[in-house]
Design a binder for these strands. Sequence first.
DNA 1: CGGGAAGCCTGACAAATGTCACGGAGAAGG
DNA 2: CCTTCTCCGTGACATTTGTCAGGCTTCCCG
Lengths: 201, 201
Amino acid sequence: MIRVILAEDQAMVRGALASLLDLEPDIEVVGEAATGEEAVAVVERVRPDVALLDIEMPGMDGIAAAAEIRDRVPGCRVMILTTFGRPGYLRRAMEAGAAGFLVKDSPARDLAVAIRRVLGGERVIDPGLAAAALSAGPNPLSQRERAVLAVAADGATIADIARALHLSEGTVRNYLSSAIQKTGARNRIEAVQRSRLQGWL
Amino acid sequence: MIRVILAEDQAMVRGALASLLDLEPDIEVVGEAATGEEAVAVVERVRPDVALLDIEMPGMDGIAAAAEIRDRVPGCRVMILTTFGRPGYLRRAMEAGAAGFLVKDSPARDLAVAIRRVLGGERVIDPGLAAAALSAGPNPLSQRERAVLAVAADGATIADIARALHLSEGTVRNYLSSAIQKTGARNRIEAVQRSRLQGWL
DNA sequence: CGGGAAGCCTGACAAATGTCACGGAGAAGG
DNA sequence: CCTTCTCCGTGACATTTGTCAGGCTTCCCG
């Protein structure tokens, strides 16, 4: 029996995935979580074979949870199951020690297959996505640029960002400007968009 | 037997929901669709008792599909199942003739219950959401303001918007400005954010 | 040790954005 | 008919944003 835990913030999707997996004769869902923190706690308690993590969760996200689980419970394989197949996500997931990376666009039947292969020691990654991640290259944004862009993303003015990050306004502008250059955008909105699309944010 | 069709663009979620519903002894999934257009076509062909529609789908969205289905196949009850419990979505869904409105945050077991109640003639709506929709009031943005804001949302400059909508730049500014006022925002980014949050966009 | 890179700042400038006051056309409604 | 509303446009204006060219530290790496 393959023992799996499921982390996903949308209760209905989580329940549906559980019922999907329970159909498989060799797979058993032994725990569920709605946040990254919960996922780590559940994994430590039930010691599953595989942890299936969504990325977009409130609080600690799935990638951070993956890293945490790898450190604390090395015997547990981590798979990421996410809505968005963004190159940066895949890259970060791999760095966090994930053994699999699936997008929710792929057919439902693939999930069980992927779990079995991961348990067999393989790394399972959407091939098209892997190519995109390689061709896109690494995240060009520095930490500061990312931080500034992240705050700008929800409508903050330069002054707001400066206050939030304890920087001078001029500095914020410079970071924003260089982020705009690096993403090839024409203004901050496009820069935010493109960064999100690449999974850099 | 309650005959249901499922429209949802993420194949894995769609498959999982199908397996969830198939667990119920009195419910049968008789069709699936990945877009609004497909959903309408499938409903016309298989004539289900209930159509369960996601809102966020490529092409025609779930709300537009709901309106279409109500016109073409009046006997079919329409339920919306969406990620985002935005007041404006609920309002529009009701106007499109939906009999139910569920968010994916609610527990998986609620789904089957809601389907049975809708089939019994009830209207099933998340009570908290209904209150929010009422207190939020109707969409204050005019058609033009919405259109301008929608184009601005993905990083377009004033000139871009003017070109896209065949308006003069000054006009675009005015609409954008009034949209900013009406949403109580401080710039277009905040205006876009708030409008999205309310489901006005 | 001497780059080079990142972080932080300044000041100055052009361009884009947001606001305001105003006018005309057409549709809706008293 | 007159009023009011939305839509579309103008022009002028203040503010914000984006760019550029510096300068100052610190830390890392060859």
